[in-house]
Each structure stands twice: as C-alpha cells, then as structure tokens.
Nucleic acid binder design. Structure first.
Lengths: 190, 190
DNA sequence: GCGTATAGAATGAACGTTCGATCTAAAGTT
DNA sequence: AACTTTAGATCGAACGTTCATTCTATACGC
C-alpha cells in the first residue's frame, strides 16, 4: 500500500483545509477562494495538483479512505482469531470516526453526493463485505446473505459514531463491548 | 398532526422538484434556475414561499420528515404488542426508504450538511429513541443505554436501505425478518 | 537553464436574490 | 347584480456578487 507520507506537503495542506471547510460549510460552502486561505496556498497551487474541484474531492475521498483503512488494519495486527478481529474491526473504525469526526462528516456527504459516481453504499463495503463473508464461509457466522451482516455491522458502527459526534454521547469501552457482544450473538449464535 | 394536503400546490411542486435535483446533482448542483425549470414555477414564486435557499432546504426537510413519520405510524395502527411494533417499525422505514430512495439521499445529505443546525444524528432519533427506551423501561429489552439500541436498530435500517438503493440488492421479506430476528435476539434475549 | 512549483490578478459564467409588473379571486360597496 | 378595491400569488428580467478556472509572472531545484 502507498505510504501516506509520500504525498507532497502542499497537497496534504489542501486536503486538510478542505476537510475543515467541508465539515464547517459543506460542499457548496467550500469555495476555492476560501480553500486557498484555509490551506495557505494559491489558486495556482491547487490547480497544479488537481485538475478541478471535482477532481480534488474525488482524490480527497481516496486520501482519507486510505488513511482509515491503514488505521483499521494497523489495529488488526497480530489478531488471528476471527472473533477477535470481529471485535477489533468494529472498535477501530468507531474510534477513528469519533476521533476524526470531520472525516466521517466528509465521507457521509461525499457518499450521498453526485461526486460519488461508483454509487457504492459505503466506503468499506468492499473490505467489510469480504470480512463478513469470510466469517460465513468458515462457519464462524451463521449462514445467510452477507448483506444482512454488512447492514448490521457497518450500520451500527456508523450510527454509533454519528450519535457520538452529533450528540456528544460517548459510548465507553464497556458500552462498545456490549454492543458488539449483541451483534456477535445475533450473527454467530442464532 | 397537520395534514400534508394542506400545503399549497406550488409549494409541493417546489419540494418535489428540489428532491429530484438534490438526488441527481446534490445541494451544490441544485441551483435556483434549475429548480424553477424542474418545478415549473418562477423565481418569484419560490421566494414568495421561502425567504432563501437555506429556508427552502430546512422546510423541505421538515416536509419529508413528516411524510415519513406519517407513513411509519400508519403502518403501526392496531399493533399493540411491543415485539410486533419492533418488527413493524423497522420494516415500515425500510420499505419507505427503498421505495423513495431520493428521500433517503436527501436526508443523508441534509443531516451531514451545515443546513442541519440542530446537529441531530438522525431525523428519527427522537421517536425511535423513545420507542427503544420504552422497551427497556418495560423490560421487553435488556437494560442498557438506549443509545446502544438506537445505533443497532437505526443503523441497520439505514444501512440496509442504502445497500438496496446504491447496490440494487433487495432484501426480500424473509431476509428482513431474519435481520430483525437477530436484532431482537441481541436486544431482548441476551 | 529548464522543468516543476507557487503566486495572485483577471475572466466570464453562473449564482442567489430583488423588484416592479401582472394576474386572480375574494371582499366590500352601492 | 355590477363595479371597485385589495391582498396575495405569480411572473421573469435585472442586479451585484461570487464562483471555478485560466493566465501570466516569478521563484526554486537540479
């Protein structure tokens, strides 16, 4: 996987500035002139790295997506047991989103916007679908359509993160453990 | 509850036109000039009913929110058993979203945008939080923080709907029943 | 000294909004 | 019943602003 540190300094500054603005003012409120001020770069620089605003948003999505993926897989190192990974994946994603709420807000706005051409229901359907299907195929999880598990697993992470971000209600370690327990029971034991 | 039919014809035309455009082009792509063509009204008419584009979007959110609420409570009529309502609520919302995907897309874009001042994590946190808390208080559901159940319940509806809308994978009646069974098991029996 | 990186003024298109004109239909007046 | 008044609804051209993008010029790195 490509190391994130390889990105040019200015390109990262643009991503970070845009993240702030999209979270604060939304897509329609994130103008190029605001962005140049926020990121301390000139218009010329932005158009040196990106061919258009559309292009910027799409690359920005890939950038943060790869950051999240790197974070999640970093948390999985050394975890071999399926059940252990089932718990760790959920927690890793929840922690990333609650610590980086602007990334979550950006994702949610991006995915439901026309920028998202692929029309993928979620940035992680791929990796998480595979993970849950693996669980079914290896009989860790009860057999059924994997989409059912994607809905339960991903849905609860995203919603729990949003509840935290918007409502300032933090689920502590025990709450999270309980939630995943309930998911696991439903998916592995019934 | 206010009857939806009471809205002036033109106002509804504006809402419906805006819904099309937001689903197709997003907030930033929904310009007033496009909207006047889509809804077959003049600019003057739009500004007669709404003081600004912001105002339009906020009222539009309330409009569709009340439509969804009316649909869900309509499906609940005569259902008295808590478990029955637990199943019906989930199904009613899922069916509404999958039949009206543009409403779901609009909600998701709105909620994560700066238009949403209240910063409510979801349009239904209120009603559904109350419903799930009722389940806990009356011992239909195992005692815990209601937010945990909101995350599981609402998260799975929204994600399942999105999987259907974006991915064209329909969960049939049996799939849905199974999903809710698993939710119920985790929340009521463990 | 040549290609890449940065700057910021310039540009024309498109934006949200305003405004005065016109229409409609009910209320008031005789 | 016929005429007048009035207030709300509708229209679309016009306005000033802001937008994404382009262009030209300057600095840097090899």
């Amino acid at each position: 996987m490509k190391d994130i540190k390889e990105f040019p300094e200015k390109e990262i500054a643009i991503y970070e500035g845009a993240l702030e603005l999209v979270a604060k003012f939304g897509f329609h409120g994130t103008s190029m002139s605001l962005l140049t001020k926020e990121a301390n770069v000139s218009t010329g620089t932005v158009y040196h790295y990106f061919s258009s605003k559309d292009d910027l948003m799409k690359k920005m999505y890939c950038y943060y997506r790869s950051k999240v993926e790197a974070h999640v897989s970093g948390q999985l190192e050394g975890k071999k047991e399926y059940k252990q990974r089932f718990y760790s994946r959920w927690k890793a994603l929840y922690l990333y989103y609650t610590r980086n709420p602007k990334v979550l807000q950006f994702f949610e706005q991006f995915i439901n916007s026309p920028y998202n051409q692929e029309r993928s229901p979620h940035h992680f359907t791929g990796a998480y679908f595979t993970f849950l299907k693996e669980g079914i195929d290896n009989k860790y999880l009860k057999p059924t359509k994997p989409e059912i598990y994607v809905a339960m697993y991903m849905g609860s992470v995203v919603m729990a993160s949003k509840i935290n971000v918007f409502g300032s209600i933090l689920l502590d370690e025990k709450d999270r453990e309980l939630l995943i327990n309930k998911l696991w029971y439903g998916m592995a034991e019934v």
